[in-house]
Design a protein around this nucleic acid. Structure first.
Length: 287
DNA sequence: CACACGTGGCG
DNA sequence: TCGCCAAGTGT
């Protein structure tokens, strides 16, 4: 299975800048954070401008957090920008400006969880770490476990499986990115392209007749009328403003007063918004 | 462990 | 159309 998947990857991998030969650990780290819950097509242009402006951790660390939040644009989950800025400051101050290579030190950075720490250790530093993202989990669920979808939360069994399949250090990172790419391009969640899959003939799920998902239903993401939607509206106003924004300008984008105040308070508590005197607001430290 | 947390595109 | 989904993390 390994040689087949890696050969498929060699022929079909997308040409992404964070995979280029001249990539840096910082570029890999930035890409991984941006890619959390966000499609590649939306990340790529933002990654390019981000790396042009802040080519190393110290250059981002020298900025106010609001600059990072604004440059994040419409990628979503702007707390990721705040945490990436925080990670840059930790790297600048405690790691001499160099992205740490150990999984444990990466995991200690804000906004870096198990997946991202493993991905950076593996993709940027060539270490042998199981990289378990939604793509890998889905491919292994189908190809090996014979189920349409993986469990809702990552299980110890999934981790054991991924580790048991991990090849030696020389090829571990390539194997992980190849499986990930297979999940992203072929073994997709909704409409897998099994006719183009290099391991379709040995896929446990297909061999079992492609049985439908039977476990507990996947949790949907509520949106319309939620606090999240309100927060998004408020952040959009602040992101696009060149100067501090008066409160009425925020009130205008979310009429329900109680929910709006709760959302705004939450943004302030999260450090995404800075309240100023006279009922003005701005991105933290920004203009 | 379940939930909060943005945004936009596709089937 | 509208629910589902996208290289998760923190609490």
């Amino acid at each position: 299975m390994h040689d087949t998947v890696i050969a498929w990857y060699s022929a079909h991998a997308r040409d992404l800048p964070w995979r280029a030969p001249d990539r840096t650990p910082w570029g890999v780290l930035v890409s991984e954070v941006m890619l959390q819950q966000t499609p590649v097509v939306r990340v790529e242009p933002v990654w390019r401008s981000w790396m042009a402006r802040w080519p190393e951790p110290a250059s981002l660390a020298a900025e106010e957090p609001g600059a990072a939040i604004r440059a994040w644009g419409r990628l979503g989950y702007p707390r990721r920008a705040l945490r990436l800025h925080g990670a840059a400051r930790v790297i600048a101050e405690r790691h001499a400006g160099k992205v740490p290579s150990s999984y444990e030190e990466l995991l200690a950075l804000p906004g870096i969880g198990d997946y991202t720490a493993a991905a950076v250790a593996s993709f940027a530093f060539g270490q042998r770490r199981a990289v378990l993202d939604t793509n890998v989990r889905r491919v292994l669920a189908r190809a090996v476990s014979g189920t349409q979808y993986p469990p809702n939360a990552t299980t110890a069994a999934e981790r054991r499986l991924a580790e048991s399949l991990l090849p030696d250090t020389e090829t571990a990172a390539t194997w992980s990115v190849a499986v990930m790419e297979l999940g992203a391009l072929i073994c997709t969640a909704r409409k897998p392209r099994c006719d183009a899959c290099p391991i379709a003939h040995q896929c446990a799920w297909r061999l079992a007749g492609a049985p439908p998902h039977d476990g507990p239903p996947r949790r949907g993401q509520a949106w319309e009328g939620t606090d999240r939607q309100a927060r998004g509206r408020l952040m959009a106003v602040l992101r696009e403003a060149d100067h501090p924004v008066p409160k009425p300008a925020l009130d205008a984008v979310w009429p329900a007063a109680a929910q709006r105040e709760r959302a705004l308070d939450g943004l302030v508590a999260d450090g995404l918004v800075e309240p100023l005197d006279n009922n003005f607001y701005r991105l933290p430290g920004a203009r």
